[in-house]
Design a protein around this nucleic acid. Structure first.
Length: 703
RNA sequence: GCCACCCUAGCUCAGUGGUAGAGCACUCCCUUGGUAAGGGAGAGGUCGUGGGUUCAAAUCCCAUGGGUGGCUCCA
């Protein structure tokens, strides 16, 4: 057989060999470091016979640097190596848990980007107090350095074995594997193969003394390859994500090749925790959430309000430039409005309950009406009420409908910072990123079909301006298409095709990579979303642009065409920030609370070195205020060091130290929060530079 | 909504059945200073809330509110 290596060189063997044998043929060092192989793009166990002529890459353990950290060949961690390691560690953990709780039924245990988990069914709840004893058991298994041994059975022998063992989840996994085209079922023994040839087709199952698990593999050669690991957390999950199905305990863990790598990872997690907007936000006085006000209802404190207002001013400038008109609409609307739009009852579960007049409720109560009857009468349209608006589009649509429009008027672009309310599940709420009341930087564009492409481009352009201005480069673009099997969508397939085509075309013109994701569309149309990750790795949709042929039909909107016939406009829904709450939550983490000058709640702080210089400090402060800066004078009876520490902690961009030398020279001694002491500068010169930095919305230097 | 865990002073936390603690912040006094915490004194908590067990509960049990991590959901 002929093996082609990644550098293009070839090796020939006159018998079937495994990657291990190829590695040994190349060199003893490689053979020792090898933990797996990639065969024409598919991961293989090291000792699994190669399929024939193929391209082969040997996956190796990293070397260690002086500090014990992994040193990777091309500088960045090899995802395949870590995949093998973590998948293998999941087996080690599963074995440990099965030993500690023998009635455990294993379900599914895949590797993740930064670790792994195992879903398992067990009556006893596992708690974090148990982690130490799970880890101790894992440590023993790793120290035993038992080989991972794969064997395969065909369906005829495999299923009887599974049926006898009676783990319905593994049976289901096997059935799905077969349905997916698998010709055999594979198991991994954590230990020796008891003398049988694991790669030969077996007619009967062996009875291993060691732990084994139905698993596609592959794995590292032996448990000893697992360097450092930690059981991280416990959560619940459901079989195939179905909440009505069986519930599992999901145990999360992570593994690295070295202890130093693991330590570094844990340190990074801790730093991420310190950067979390839920930690920084309240500390910097940006926002609070109050039990008495309600879950998921953000109270913007003065500092947060500044950031929000600056962002709103920023976007408003661009809206004016792009021909948007500002509107205001109320926070509630009649139920019928949302029946027309289709939001009610599609999303009844995620709306605040309707507001019904006291007289009506009393009258119904007198009639002995139950809540269930009330609800069904409301749905049937027999009772009217008001809904806290879950979105702004119906209101904007009614503004459009209040005038007769000619094709000459289009496009019409109506913008509003519109506050909406959604009854999100309590378990979903958190910080500013998932809330029950939020303000969208919303707009609805009504245009002709011919104008659609240009308008979409304009919307995407705006989102890009937002991201560029704030230096947010780490985002992905998702084109949400309808799920072919979904039933939540309204409208004709032909219109969906047109709308989806328009979105894909616009996304392509964006010049950024994007992914098409079926099932991610809104119920009325496809959309282009800008998605970013928060500091703990969760993804959030921020900016969004959506194409909608449906609501103009449902609301019977029209404009007069050039041929004097009535035509349907196409709508675009778009929000560059998405919601102010979520956007600023992510932004706090992006800047680690150190906002650029134009956004900083407090832009400067004047620090007199003693109260002898208070008068001069006050005159400097007044000049800065006159230049429009948000500035405070720290007149506390404290030493300079203490004042600096407080200002640094508040992440104030500029600290202006003033003492005798400055008073005599008419200067301020500038300290920047990330650049440190910049020396004495004339007050006017400082103001001039700072005005420029502010007005250009410069990102400045970030710490 | 589901599962696990958590809730003690404004903040971060210690306190496993026997008289509620520390640091920071706060108030007052001393100190008047040049780039990340000067010194002293004082004030501040019915231990999320409501029940229960007990001679005795921050501590054990039940319920409930809120938070965290996941699952599910996200117009």
């Amino acid at each position: 057989m002929k093996i082609t290596l990644p550098d293009g060189s070839e090796k020939s063997f006159d018998k079937q060999v495994s990657a291990a044998e190829v590695a040994a043929d190349i060199g003893a060092g490689l053979a020792k470091a090898a933990i797996g192989a990639k065969v024409d793009g598919e991961l293989y166990d090291l000792n699994r016979p190669l399929p024939g002529d193929c391209g082969l890459a040997i996956i190796t353990k990293p070397r260690e640097d002086k500090k014990g950290k992994s040193k990777w060949r091309d500088g960045k961690p090899d995802a395949d190596a870590l995949y093998l390691l973590r998948h293998s560690c999941a087996h080690v953990m599963a074995e440990a848990i099965c030993k500690l709780w023998p009635d455990t039924q294993l379900a599914y245990g895949p590797p993740l980007d930064n670790g792994f988990y195992y879903d398992l069914s067990l009556d006893t709840p596992i708690s974090s107090d148990d982690f130490a004893k799970i880890e101790a058991e894992m440590k023993r298994i790793v120290e035993e350095d038992r080989p991972f041994t794969r064997y395969e059975l065909d369906a005829d022998t495999g299923f009887p074995k599974l049926n006898e063992e009676g783990n319905k989840y593994k049976i289901d996994n096997a059935e799905r594997a077969c349905a997916g085209g698998a010709k055999t079922l594979s198991w991994y023994i954590t230990g020796e193969a008891n003398g049988f040839n694991p790669w030969a087709s077996l007619t009967c199952a062996p009875k291993p003394e060691n732990f084994e698990d139905l698993c596609q593999g592959p794995h590292v050669p032996s448990t000893g390859a697992v360097g450092a690991f930690k059981v991280m957390s416990i959560a619940s999950s459901n079989w195939h994500g179905d909440v009505t199905s069986d519930r599992f305990q999901r145990v999360y863990g992570t593994a690295f090749f070295t202890q130093a790598d693991l330590d570094e990872h844990l340190e990074n997690l801790e730093q991420a925790r310190q950067r979390d907007h839920r930690v920084i936000g309240p500390r910097l006085g940006l926002y609070t959430i109050d039990e008495q006000v309600g879950q998921g209802l953000v109270l913007w404190k003065p500092n947060g309000a500044v950031v929000r207002q600056e962002l709103q001013n920023f976007i408003a400038e661009h809206l004016t430039r792009q021909g948007y008109k500002q509107v205001f609409t109320p926070h509630i609307g009649k139920l019928g409005l949302y029946k027309t739009s289709g939001h009610y009852p599609y999303y009844q579960d995620s709306q605040y309950p309707a507001l019904v007049s006291r007289e009506q409720v009393n009258a119904l109560a007198d009639e002995g009406c139950t809540c269930a009857q009330l609800s069904s009468q409301m749905e049937a349209g027999e009772i009217d009420g008001y809904l806290l608006k879950p979105m702004n589009c119906p209101h904007h649509i009614r503004i459009f409908a209040s005038d007769k429009h000619s094709y000459r008027d289009l496009p019409i672009r109506l913008a509003e910072f519109g506050t909406v309310y959604r009854w999100e599940q309590s378990g979903e709420l958190g910080g500013m990123t998932r809330v029950r009341g939020f303000t969208q930087d919303d707009a609805h564009l009504f245009c002709t079909e011919d104008q659609l492409d240009a308008e979409l481009s304009g919307c995407l352009e705006l989102v890009k301006i937002v991201f560029n201005t704030l230096g947010m480069e780490d985002y992905r673009v998702r084109v949400g298409l309808r799920d072919p099997d979904g039933d939540k969508y309204v409208g004709e397939p032909a219109q969906w095709d047109k709308a989806e085509a328009a979105c894909l075309k616009a996304a392509k013109s964006l010049g950024v990579e994007f992914s098409s994701e079926p099932g991610e569309a809104a119920f009325y149309g496809p959309k282009i979303d800008f998605v970013v990750k928060d500091v703990i790795g969760r993804e959030w949709q921020l900016g969004t642009v959506q194409v909608d042929y449906q609501l103009p039909i449902r609301f019977d909107l029209s404009y007069t065409g050039a041929d004097n016939t009535q035509k349907k406009p196409v709508m675009i829904h778009r929000a560059p920030f998405g919601s102010m709450e979520r956007f600023i939550g992510v932004l706090i983490e992006h800047f680690n609370g150190a906002f650029p000058l134009w956004l900083a709640p407090q832009q400067m702080r004047v620090l007199p070195i003693s109260d002898k210089f208070l008068e001069y400090a006050q005159s400097v402060t007044d000049k800065l205020k006159a230049a429009g800066f948000r500035v405070e004078l720290d007149a506390n009876n404290e030493r300079l060091n203490a004042k600096i520490k407080l200002a640094q902690e508040a992440k104030v961009p500029y600290m202006l130290v003033v003492g005798g030398k400055d008073q005599d020279a008419g200067t301020v001694s500038v300290r920047h929060r990330s650049e440190g002491d910049k020396g004495a500068v004339a007050v006017e010169a400082f103001i001039e530079a700072a005005v420029k930095e502010r007005d250009e919305r410069s990102l400045g230097s970030q710490s």
